[in-house]
Amino acid sequence: MAYGQSEGVCDTLVVSGNPEYPPLLWRPADNPSTLVGAVPALLREIVEPLGIEVKVKDLGSWARVLHQARTGELDLIAGAFITDERQTFLDYIQPPITWQPTHIWVARGREFNYRYWSDLRGKRGATLINNSFGQDFDRFAEDHLSIEGIRTIEQSFRMAKLGRVDYVLYEHLQGHAKLARLGLEDEFVDLLPPISSEPLYFAFPRNSACNTEALRSAFAERLAEATGDRRIDRLLEEYTDRYLNEK
């Protein structure tokens, strides 16, 4: 049965995601109660033809997004990596939206030799609270590294610039966008290789009333069409320009 013909149809999705994630997601200056970006734009293209309205909320932090997803106050997370812990309360939709390489960002002039995760031992890192970079790295970091969770990535970069931490863990695309917007792009470098490259997904909280087999199936079918057309790549170009030119 096609979505829309079944009983109990969900006509509105309350959505949120990581507000520190431009050009995929960010809090616009002219409407700080919501989030905009390539991922919300893709989401609307997927679900509005199904007769579903999308309401994207800014919840203030990624940690709060995950909390409200766990309690069922959200209907969809617009962009999350898979972890065992998150799979206890989220249903991830295949295929992924895109893949996200995560880099080590250091203040220019404070570069250090890096090839393997073990090269980070004894150094101080910073990233967003509750950020995941793939389960293998997360486990290694928990056992062997010192990485502080910070509320905003801007604060993490400023701490690195002041020498309070040695590096910042942040995704490649988002790092370039954030630093360009802050006017700090020439003051940081990203070290290679990436620490990980993880698929990013839409995910339905299991406690959401909108999380039904019919909607997940229709959603996945339309997402597969969009990813097959590489629609996210064109949206990323468009929203990178919007983010960097936002007043």
Rank of each mutant, 00 (worst) to 15 (best):
E45Y: 02
E45W: 02
I46T: 00
V47Y: 03
V47C: 10
V47T: 13
E48G: 11
P49L: 03
L50S: 06
G51P: 11
G51F: 06
G51R: 08
I52C: 10
I52D: 10
I52E: 10
E53C: 08
E53L: 06
V54C: 11
V54H: 10
K55C: 05
K55G: 07
K55E: 14
V56S: 13
K57H: 12
K57E: 15
K57A: 09
K57I: 09
D58N: 15
L59T: 13
L59N: 14
G60H: 12
S61M: 08
S61F: 06
A63T: 14
A63W: 06
R64Y: 08
R64H: 12
H67T: 14
H67W: 10
H67Q: 15
Q68P: 09
Q68M: 12
Q68E: 15
A69L: 09
R70H: 15
T71G: 12
G72S: 11
E73V: 01
E73G: 11
L74G: 11
L74K: 11
L74H: 09
L76T: 08
L76P: 12
I77K: 06
A78F: 03
A78P: 11
A78S: 14
G79F: 02
G79D: 13
F81N: 12
F81R: 10
I82R: 15
T83I: 06
D84I: 01
D84C: 01
D84N: 11
E85D: 15
E85H: 12
L90T: 13
D91Q: 10
D91S: 13
D91E: 15
Y92W: 07
Y92R: 05
Q94D: 14
P95Q: 05
P95W: 02
P95C: 04
P95K: 05
P96H: 05
I97P: 06
I97K: 05
I97Y: 04
T98Y: 07
Q100R: 04
Q100F: 00
Q100H: 07
H103R: 04
I104V: 13
I104T: 02
I104H: 01
W105F: 05
R108A: 08
G109A: 03
G109C: 04
R110L: 00
E111N: 05
F112L: 02
F112K: 03
N113R: 10
N113Y: 09
N113I: 01
Y114D: 06
Y116C: 01
Y116T: 11
Y116K: 09
W117L: 07
S118I: 07
S118V: 10
S118A: 14
S118R: 12
D119W: 03
L120G: 04
L120Q: 04
G122H: 08
K123P: 03
R124D: 05
R124V: 01
R124L: 03
G125F: 00
G125D: 02
A126T: 02
A126W: 00
T127H: 00
T127R: 00
T127S: 07
T127I: 00
L128H: 05
L128S: 05
L128E: 08
I129W: 06
N130M: 09
N130F: 04
N130G: 04
